[in-house]
Write a protein that binds this DNA or RNA. Structure first.
Length: 199
DNA sequence: CAATAGATCATCT
DNA sequence: GATGATCTATTGC
């Protein structure tokens, strides 16, 4: 409380259904070290019925954290090159997570730029799930970390709830038509999913 | 502007 | 042994 970046979200925020958490994370601030960014795009991943979700495979060494208590980070390695950040939702024992897909850089922007030398503008710094983990220095070492305390947190800085646009999720094969991608309407920092189908 | 190839490895079959 | 919740550079129109 009273911190420059606002109040850290409590565990009760995450202990709700995944879609609600995904929608309400829009506008909140992700903080890691000196870097911070406003969450402008998320996707919801559910449980056994959602074949696009890693949790649909059941409990494995990799998906264990998805079935654990809410308010923890799920960071996984993909395509031999990138890491993606998710926040675990739902009560303990029920799988569900929210993929953080894009951020509006707020603090530590020079540091982000040095970690993402190929980004040409500030709009490219964290406009994708692989880009934002690189920009903020988030790695698999944070898998399972408690985001209600510790080096990686999510905060509410008092920004009013944004208008939300909904689209299908990006880059998946299964359940590719489920409307579970959420973005802040008109925000220029979201990822470029389909060149022509952008707000 | 659109389509595609290449990078590169943890995870699961 | 194949696949994948990606990104970049390059090619082709």
């Amino acid at each position: 409380m009273g911190s420059r970046q606002g109040c850290v979200l409590p565990r009760s925020f995450y202990s709700r259904d995944t879609v609600t958490v995904a929608r309400e994370l829009l506008g909140k601030v992700l903080v890691h070290g000196q870097t911070a960014g406003r969450i402008v795009e998320t996707e919801a991943y559910l449980g056994l019925d959602d074949l696009a979700a890693h949790a649909s495979k059941g409990i494995t060494p990799r998906t264990r954290v998805l079935f654990g208590p809410p308010g923890h980070a799920y960071v996984y390695f993909i395509y031999g090159m990138y890491e993606c950040l998710n926040l675990v939702a739902e009560r303990e024992g029920v799988p569900g997570c929210v993929l953080i897909r894009a951020l509006e850089p707020l603090a530590g922007i020079d540091e982000m730029r040095s970690r993402r030398p190929t980004a040409r503008t500030i709009y490219d710094l964290a406009s994708g799930p692989g880009k934002l983990t690189l920009a903020m220095g988030i790695t698999r070492k944070l898998n399972g970390a408690d985001v209600t305390r510790g080096p990686l947190t999510v905060r509410d800085d008092g920004e009013p709830p944004p208008e939300i646009a909904v689209t299908p999720r990006i880059g998946i094969r299964h359940c590719a038509d489920w409307p579970m991608r959420f973005l802040i309407k008109g925000n220029p920092f979201v990822s470029r999913a389909k060149p022509s189908c952008q707000f």
